[in-house]
Design a protein around this nucleic acid. Structure first.
Lengths: 224, 224, 224, 224
DNA sequence: GATGAATGAGTTTTCATTCAT
DNA sequence: TATGAATGAAAACTCATTCAT
């Protein structure tokens, strides 16, 4: 199931609020759904959707529970607290993206090609069919102090992959690789706010970003 | 007073939570402060800081009030609701940024130079000394449905400036100007999540982004 | 209004549970009651009754609120938390007892007489018409760690009055004054569990305890 | 394992909360422990410790279960409800104390000596090495209505032993035997709130109370 | 006998909002 | 204009209890 923002007014659109407004019951999957592995997983997925759509503070446990087909109290059998649930979702999302990116770059040699594949995979995971990983992007600013260190730790390993990828590029002397990496990642994450179905495919959007940054001189020095 | 995120762990850092943890009283300016223009303005500024730091749902009226040196109930004389307060802050921020960008590009002819100045101004306003406009970036995902249309309307005029700026560029054929614009704006806004004092200046960070994207062929065709 | 335990079965009775079972509405005093000083005081009194009757964990904020004629949320305007409310009640109770005991011993010279008056006052305050001070006795065992230090501090001053009173007695050599004080105070507090109207007056019960302990040899050596 | 209150600040100390703060797992005895008789007994003991330390409302089934090495649901195979569990613990405690007191006074003739031995035994059982009987004292005030009659019934037999013991004393005419008994029992129970290891032994504390009350005239008229 | 998973009513607490003064 | 006090709905979380396995 895919929930995506539709660009409104042609500009940088405000993000999708569908879940926040959706009656929780509409998103309940029946217990016998073949895709249902177990309750913990269902809760994790429901939480991913709610956090994705509403942010940490905007999401509430009752809606998560309803979306997972359980009562609010039942979540606490599986997760210690809202914080812990968020950390679990975030960790799972990071894991998925790590796997996706790793698989995407495997067997590719050219540094710019590797980065392009990584960006495509990141964007695809973030906006693709599962959209489980939506938490990655939007919750940044509503994260509370207590969660910071845990989330940072989870992200570090993921982002070091991009550091490595970018470290292999031959960037112009006036480009700081760290600034480069941060701009790339935030632009990629930013797609969560404006991507909508019907337009360019997520992976292609990711690719475009890297192509914009790829200097012709580097890419195809002979012609220039 | 400036509150900025410090990059933690070398990766994409979680954003600054200083305001959320600051005792409200510490941010109260005495009513006779020479900088105090009036209560409405003070509330607006306090709200900008809180919304910036905590997001829409994470911020609360009592802290805004305390930071403005009034009681919670008093806000309602000046603003109809939390939503209205947010829209007012957002509108004021957009106005400031519009002015800043307009002033920055005035008198500059080259399209890429114009974009670079615009990006520098955007970044400076977002992360600079006043940082009033912080609301622009982080609260996207926690915005509730009822606010969407109002916020979108406020943004449209601002973003059309960037549309115009980018429309003047001679982009490669395989680059979609709309995707280009969205990537630029989200990357620029993303600086809110990782910029910290002590590193590169905000305006230089904005400039770097455009320089990364500026094709040598386009910028300086004679040499290539 | 007085709520007291009635001894059941002739033994050490379990304490009164009337308040726990009473419908909250039955204890609401109308807002125009002449005895009503203000809401904070009313909440304090209602809390004293609930904590007295049910203990710290057994009492709940909703019942306290209802008994004070406000909604549960309103309590938090006056008190930061349940803990803080309890500490406030406890402190007020200690103050009342301190005053009562101080007044009772004023102008009396004989050490045993002074202790007897103090015991009478303590018992009277604990079980008398107001019974506000009921918290003193029963909540001991349900006190949570975080409250311990605050409650202990409040008690120390009060109990040092008894230390002083007892220090003036000429106790037999084999009687430890500290053990003596602790036995006296717990016995006095214990009356909260078994005192009931219709029997001996509280002050007389307190007096009896001291008389039981007062050695004839000490009191009236000439006759023996 | 013994958990006792340490007097804090020199006054009537708030009671021990060690168990409430102890991680449940730390108190689990492995199932093959030679001291383990059976699960029911383990649950009873764990419950005694929790109720003792936290009171009826403050104790919770999950901690009792963890301390007994079972899951919360499993308790319900052995006991119908939390109330029933409490009644069982209370009954067992009363039985132990009854046996202890009966054994202590056996073969002793002098009424005051008999009472002194009974008090020593009561205090020893309450604060001694096993301290299983801790429930006796502190939960009084948090007992809920439904339990009253059952608890009272269990206590009656125990307390009638003290009635008998006291009935044999030749008390002064102005001392009411019932008041005397109640003061003695509550003072004895009160030791639970202030006794701590390192000071006087529990049995000696009990003895001291009786010695304080034992009139020299009555005890040893010839000498005086 | 025991467990894992859930329940649902209840807990304390928060917070946007109102309103008489 | 601003405040002190209150509201009431909703939040996160707890906990005794149930029940199929």
């Amino acid at each position: 199931m895919q929930v995506a923002a539709t660009a409104v007014g042609g500009g940088l659109p405000v993000p999708p609020m569908e879940f926040c407004q959706l009656k929780a019951t509409e998103t309940i999957r029946p217990a016998d759904d073949p895709h249902t592995r177990n309750k913990r997983q269902q809760i994790l997925e429901a939480a991913a959707r709610q956090f994705s759509a509403c942010g940490f503070h905007g999401a509430n446990m009752r809606d998560v529970a309803a979306a997972a087909g359980v009562l609010a109290g039942s979540i606490y059998y599986h997760f210690e607290s809202k914080d812990a649930l968020f950390v679990a979702v975030h960790g799972a999302a990071i894991d998925m993206m790590t796997n996706a990116v790793r698989a995407a770059v495997a067997g590719i040699a050219d540094p710019w090609d590797r980065l392009e594949e990584a960006a495509a995979a990141h964007c695809e995971a973030l906006n693709g069919d599962s959209a489980f990983v939506g938490v990655i992007a939007p919750i940044f600013p509503v994260t509370i102090g207590a969660l910071r260190s845990q989330l940072t730790a989870q992200r570090d390993a993921y982002e070091s992959m991009f550091s490595d990828l970018i470290g292999k590029l031959e960037l112009e002397a006036d480009i700081d690789p760290k600034i480069f990496r941060l701009h790339v990642l935030t632009a990629l994450n930013g797609t969560k706010f404006w991507y909508g179905p019907g337009g360019m495919a997520p992976s292609e959007i990711g690719r475009q970003l890297i192509r914009m940054l790829r200097r012709r001189a580097t890419r195809d020095p002979g012609i220039v």
